[in-house]
Write a protein that binds this DNA or RNA. Structure first.
Lengths: 195, 195
DNA sequence: CGTCTATTTGAATGTACTCAAAAGCGGTGG
DNA sequence: CCACCGCTTTTGAGTACATTCAAATAGACG
């Protein structure tokens, strides 16, 4: 079994011995998710957090008017869930779907709670994970408040070039909070500017 | 010495014995901040995290064009800092100013690191703090993406009624990502609607 | 009381949206 | 292998939400 990527991910922040790694891995379930399948749907109890080994997922919120807001793209080496509903074991607000054939690890809330108790270092690991997530979202709030759509698009492309290349524009637009039509216009204008 | 509020805050998530509390409190510095003073300025090294006992603070980002984006209001029982710069010990992107005379506790990064080592439960405490902050910011992203300004204003007033009452509209506008003029219009329109 | 800042109001403008239609692209079946 | 279907992207016209700028009014504070 090749647990390379997830072991590396953990080892970025904490150091586990072999026994601890074995305990951790024993709580994970490796799953293949074909493109277009969802691992969580709005309204469904959110029981798991996921680690992406390969492929790509998208988490989005669907509002009453049917408009999607993409919350995050999760590619290799990312953790993803609907955090509020996972922590509080509530019905999900978000839907998470595979946008490519993906291989992911599933960790149940009860198993995470077990890990916190059995291997205290996991508190530190998730503290750092949450900290990074908080910082990321806060930066996104700042950018949404202070930058026009075009600048936000450029930052997105700069920060996640691989996502930007492999994902539908429609989905990038919904991450930026603009319509696909307007994103199309932005890109076209920029090219004109470069002539 | 009255440490009631901060002890309550800690005790929401972890249980410390008396010795541990004493260690914790010994690392805190209680400070009075007069209205309009700043405890952190953009560009200055962010060395501390703060807990608000009383009063109110505002954290904001000032962009190149001179426009302010209010990131958060911190009132009694809240923790506040420029998290990215605190964690990485970098020059602050944010400015944090007292909008009322305030009493706060200051905790240095090095002391927090000491606490993580000396009292492992602090990992858990800050894990939960970061988790809640992440969830809050993510919800704010969703709302910024999917709701018009008027709905965001109403949610803000509903969620933080005391802040909404005591803070300048200009500052609320900069939290919502709109101009003070437009917020004024929103409020006026709503009143008309209620006649 | 006077000054400084915040809020309101209004007109002109800009950024981004809606709706509709055409063009492009990718996958699937004949 | 080509043709067709469904979905994404582009293009454009008209519209709506929010901004800018300016000026008047109201509030807060020394």
């Amino acid at each position: 079994m090749n647990h390379y990527i997830i072991q590396e991910n953990i080892s970025k922040h904490i150091t586990l011995n072999e026994t601890e790694f074995t305990i951790f891995l024993s709580r994970l379930k490796k799953i293949q998710i074909p493109r277009k399948n969802t691992i969580l749907s709005q309204g469904q109890l959110c029981e798991n957090i996921y680690f992406v080994e390969s492929g790509a997922l998208r988490a989005f919120y669907l509002d009453e008017s049917g408009k999607e807001a993409t919350i995050m793209f999760a590619v290799s080496d990312w953790w993803v869930t609907d955090m509020y509903c996972f922590i509080n074991q509530k019905p999900a607000m978000l839907t998470i779907e595979a946008i490519e054939n993906s291989i992911i690890y599933r960790l149940k809330k009860s198993d995470l709670d077990y890990l916190y108790a059995a291997i205290p270092q996991f508190e530190k690991f998730f503290r750092i994970l949450m900290q990074n997530a908080y910082i990321r979202e806060q930066l996104r709030v700042i950018q949404n408040l202070s930058l026009p759509a075009e600048a936000r698009y450029e930052i997105f492309v700069g920060k996640y070039p691989d996502v930007a290349k492999n994902v539908k524009q429609k989905q990038i637009a919904s991450y930026l909070g603009i319509t696909p039509e307007f994103l199309s216009m932005i890109k076209h204008n920029k090219r004109k500017g470069l002539k």
